[in-house]
Design a protein around this nucleic acid. Structure first.
Ligand SMILES: [Mn+2]
Ligand SMILES: [Mn+2]
Ligand SMILES: [Zn+2]
Ligand SMILES: [Zn+2]
Lengths: 138, 138
DNA sequence: TTCAAGATTGTAATGATTACAATATAAAAT
DNA sequence: ATTTTATATTGTAATCATTACAATCTTGAA
């Protein structure tokens, strides 16, 4: 927690309990939560937490490059801490979102057909390893 | 228009004036409109057109594989006729969405890390050719 | 012609997100 | 330490794309 305090300070984001807890939540294994998932998870320990604060905080953390946001095939924005460029794969069966750090080679910036590319996003859909094993259609 | 009539018939979609006009709109150069853009464009010639009908029709056309839908970095769904697999590039400056048929090689289905991939989507962002030429930062 | 299935329409509801104003908290100045 | 000022948090209301629903209109058999 002292660690997160320093991280926020260094990024010029005045640390507050709310900001620390939200950033902590994103750094501790919670894969790709939406704003609402973060709110639901934290309001137990922080009864006065407001959903507006979750949205405000997430926007600030994104603006200061402490976290990143993305969108897959649905209409909600998801957030994550992972700083390494990677691909996202969503299982149609169980809904899990997997990080694919392998094969992320085509994520570099560059020029295509005269256009300057500054940001790439690759989303995959299908049936995940676990669901394939569970059902008979491997 | 007779042509579109037959296309809908063959796809088991009972043809109606609304469905014909919407499918026609997507086949005549209109690049990647949202439901509302289609509604605004057609309500002149079809004064009684309802936005619900636009949504219903788009859903049916997608379900019957006559058009496809996708989503980039915003929260609205866009529709298109182009049946060839391709990549989308959106210009941050002018908002135009370009089709990149070149380099769409990584769009085939297959297996990755034991997951079965059935659908891939690649979205790029940056500054387009035209905007680069217009400003001095080429 | 009759009638039932399906299509279209208008309005109301939903769900994620943002705008806004009031309150609370923390930092700076006296 | 007290006052002042700036910023953070909160609750509520508004927005925007989309969906649900029920009523009306069309259409294509029987
Ligand atoms: Mn990830
Ligand atoms: Mn396209
Ligand atoms: Zn799965
Ligand atoms: Zn441009």
């Amino acid at each position: 927690m002292e660690n997160l305090f320093r991280i926020l300070k260094k990024a010029n984001v005045p640390p507050s309990m709310q900001r620390i807890k939200i950033l902590e939540y994103l750094q501790t294994g919670h894969n790709h939560p939406t704003a609402d998932m973060i709110y639901q998870a934290l309001k137990g320990q922080m009864p006065t937490l407001s959903k507006t604060t979750v949205y405000n905080t997430l926007r600030i953390l994104v603006e200061h490059n402490l976290i990143s946001e993305f969108r897959m095939f649905e209409n909600e924005v998801r957030y994550e801490y992972d700083p390494l460029p990677h691909i996202h794969f969503k299982c149609d069966r169980c809904g899990a979102i997997y990080d694919l750090h392998t094969g992320a080679g085509m994520l570099e910036s560059g020029m295509i057909d005269g256009h300057r590319i500054t940001c790439r996003q690759i989303n995959l859909k299908g049936v995940c390893r676990a669901c394939l094993k569970g059902s008979a259609d491997a």
